Amino acid sequence: MAGSKTDAPPRARVVVIATGGTIASSSEPGGAAVARRTAAQLLGSAGYGDVEVEGRDLLNLGSYLLGHHELRLIADAVAEEVARDEVTGVVVSHGTDTMEETAFLLDLVHDSDKPVVLTGAQRAADQPDSDGPRNLREAVAVAASPEARGCGALISFAGRIFAARGTRKHHTVAAEPFRTLDGGPIGRVGPAGVRITARPVRPAPLERPGPRFDDTRVDVVALHPGADAALARAAVQAGARAVVLAGTGVGNANHALLEWVSEAVAAGTVVGLSTRVAEGPVVPTYGNGGGVDLVRAGALSMGGLPLYQARLLLALLLSEGVPVDRATLAPHV
């Protein structure tokens, strides 16, 4: 009697959505690196073991060129691929300049357990020591791994895995450019495979951005000795629906900005209070133009959310008509 044969489990399938960045860049005659390579070209030089990988070309831009419209296209493309039953996970190849914003937006709206992983490179594709192929292989491994399910949007770079929220590019040229504020990576990719050592706590997903997101303007105004309210007023005059103050220290300003906050909030402009400091939350502590007075005047503390992720959160909420107040911000900051 012939022995029974157990069916092999289906192979993991990962879709790589290419958007450009250094990982897709090559040097032009003048020496400047420009994103040119397609998904097929990125995938052609790397091996992915037992994972089935397919590529999708969406954009081919340095991430310093991305606007809200392009971020919305990426969010829609990720949702389309995640919705396919046969897809295990999605990788987005992306420039490092604004990866922290795209990753955070994807995490805010991701409504599936399937992993979404962003990666890129610090050295262009035509450089002999380019880190792109290795980073891409590792990102595919993360997206295919059961360990990464339920973790939301992640950044995989140089063997480290980061949760989207709180992660920033902290070094312009280092091989390991990302760091999570007040924390560390939640996992690693090594010889033994993908290992997740901490799982991010994620609030309920928000609605994906619609077309109104493209033109929802939220500006950032930094505080410094002698700063006045001229830039904040100019931002509102230019159409900003919200302004995020990059305050000093734990979230402080001065009397000129305090007066502006009162005027702006009364006129319907949302004012977020963040900090220009690299790590640590906003903690309203001081009066006389400090954070306590700013919050009393109507500014909304953005807590421990990094400055530019705070800006993006306000833009998404405002574009979807969600009332922006302490209650709606609380799960995210």
Score class of each variant (00 low, 15 high):
residue 93 S to L: 01
residue 181 L to M: 14
residue 267 A to R: 11
residue 262 S to F: 11
residue 258 L to E: 03
residue 51 V to T: 15
residue 313 L to A: 06
residue 74 I to G: 02
residue 184 G to S: 11
residue 255 H to G: 11
residue 31 G to V: 13
residue 127 Q to R: 10
residue 168 R to L: 08
residue 279 E to W: 02
residue 154 L to A: 04
residue 329 L to C: 04
residue 67 G to V: 05
residue 158 A to E: 09
residue 298 G to K: 04
residue 242 A to K: 00
residue 63 S to M: 12
residue 328 T to A: 08
residue 18 A to F: 00
residue 171 H to I: 07
residue 176 E to A: 15
residue 142 V to K: 00
residue 39 A to M: 13
residue 105 L to E: 05
residue 108 L to Q: 09
residue 168 R to Y: 01
residue 178 F to P: 03
residue 71 L to S: 01
residue 236 V to M: 11
residue 215 D to C: 04
residue 58 L to T: 12
residue 165 R to M: 03
residue 222 A to V: 11
residue 166 G to P: 00
residue 38 T to K: 06
residue 307 L to S: 03
residue 272 G to M: 05
residue 29 P to H: 14
residue 206 L to P: 10
residue 101 E to N: 05
residue 134 R to V: 12
residue 212 R to E: 15
residue 83 A to K: 15
residue 82 V to Q: 06
residue 210 G to I: 11
residue 178 F to H: 09
residue 124 A to V: 12
residue 4 S to D: 04
residue 53 V to P: 11
residue 287 G to P: 03
residue 239 G to L: 11
residue 316 L to S: 07
residue 321 G to C: 13
residue 181 L to R: 15
residue 99 M to G: 01
residue 274 S to H: 04
residue 305 L to E: 07
residue 86 E to Q: 03
residue 321 G to R: 09
residue 121 A to P: 08
residue 234 A to R: 11
residue 160 R to C: 06
residue 28 E to V: 13
residue 279 E to G: 00
residue 266 A to H: 15
residue 240 A to R: 07
residue 148 A to K: 02
residue 207 E to Y: 09
residue 53 V to Y: 10
residue 172 T to F: 13
residue 261 V to W: 04
residue 58 L to Q: 09
residue 252 N to H: 12
residue 206 L to F: 09
residue 79 A to Q: 13
residue 283 V to N: 03
residue 112 S to L: 13
residue 85 D to W: 02
residue 95 G to V: 03
residue 81 E to D: 14
residue 269 T to Q: 09
residue 308 Y to A: 03
residue 155 I to P: 02
residue 281 P to E: 09
residue 56 R to T: 07
residue 325 D to N: 14
residue 154 L to G: 02
residue 2 A to C: 10
residue 50 D to E: 15
residue 218 V to R: 01
residue 314 L to G: 01
residue 277 V to M: 11
residue 258 L to R: 08
residue 119 T to C: 15
residue 83 A to C: 12
residue 324 V to H: 04
residue 183 G to T: 03
residue 314 L to H: 06
residue 77 A to K: 12
residue 120 G to E: 08
residue 44 G to S: 15
residue 147 E to R: 06
